[in-house]
């Protein structure tokens, strides 16, 4: 898969962004973090491509390192608004503080800030997988609406699928740490993420389409 093809496929997140822009004012606020993150992701994909084209690999790595933390914050915010931490704001902030400390530590250890923070990526993907599975179970038990029409179902499923493959690819990369590997192998591992990313972006778009309109109360008074 060439860089161009990879870039075009990654732009699929644009569908979600477009749907988000169209529906933004008419949907429930609890979906806002999802749309914010979709916009940030699209921006990151575009900047990544530009940086690769200009062969600024260190800058790209730094940006992805920062994005990992931002992604974690937005997903936990989304889950928090969906009631994962029983709407406990302190717990939500505490979890993010812990994540920030881990991000700081693993961004400078074992390598510098210009190298991928692999340990943090494995940890945050695992945490998000746990959060997503718990929220998924809540949705399946509590929501009585058909699952196919439930936006939370599509979004959470997307998160579970993406981070499962992400975790697989990242742990494989981690096991190769320190070993001199070929460019093809690294690209091959990246492709696993790219294909899952494509499927997940389409699932996010379906989820965004399913988000119901906010109920307007004209009031009887």
């Amino acid at each position: 898969m060439t860089n161009e093809v990879q870039f075009i496929l990654s732009l699929c997140i644009g569908f979600t962004v477009i749907i988000g822009i169209v529906k933004f004012k008419r949907i429930d606020r609890s979906y806002y973090p999802f749309f914010y993150l979709a916009c940030i992701s699209l921006l990151v994909e575009i900047i990544s491509y530009v940086l690769i084209e200009k062969e600024m690999y260190d800058e790209k790595t730094v940006m992805i390192n920062v994005f990992c933390f931002i992604e974690f914050v937005f997903y936990t915010w989304l889950f928090h608004l969906w009631g994962l931490f029983n709407f406990n704001r302190r717990l939500f902030i505490f979890i993010n503080l812990i994540a920030f400390l881990m991000w700081l530590v693993f961004s400078f250890y074992p390598e510098g800030f210009t190298k991928p923070n692999m340990y943090f990526r494995v940890i945050y993907a695992t945490a998000l997988l746990f959060f997503a599975v718990t929220t998924f179970n809540k949705v399946v038990i509590q929501d009585r609406a058909p699952l196919f029409k439930n936006p939370k179902f599509w979004i959470i499923l997307g998160i579970i699928i993406f981070f499962s493959f992400y975790l697989l690819s990242r742990t494989a990369s981690l096991s190769l740490f320190g070993i001199d590997t070929s460019r093809q192998l690294r690209r091959g591992l990246q492709e696993v993420i790219n294909y899952s990313n494509l499927i997940v972006n389409l699932m996010f778009a379906i989820g965004a389409l399913c988000i119901p309109r906010k109920k307007n109360f004209t009031g009887l008074f």
């Binding site: 697989l168 690819s169 190769l176 192998l185 091959g188 591992l189």
Partner: peptide
């Protein structure tokens, strides 16, 4: 590497 990639 091929074997490793296939396993992945």
């Amino acid at each position: 590497e091929e074997e490793f990639y296939r396993a992945i």
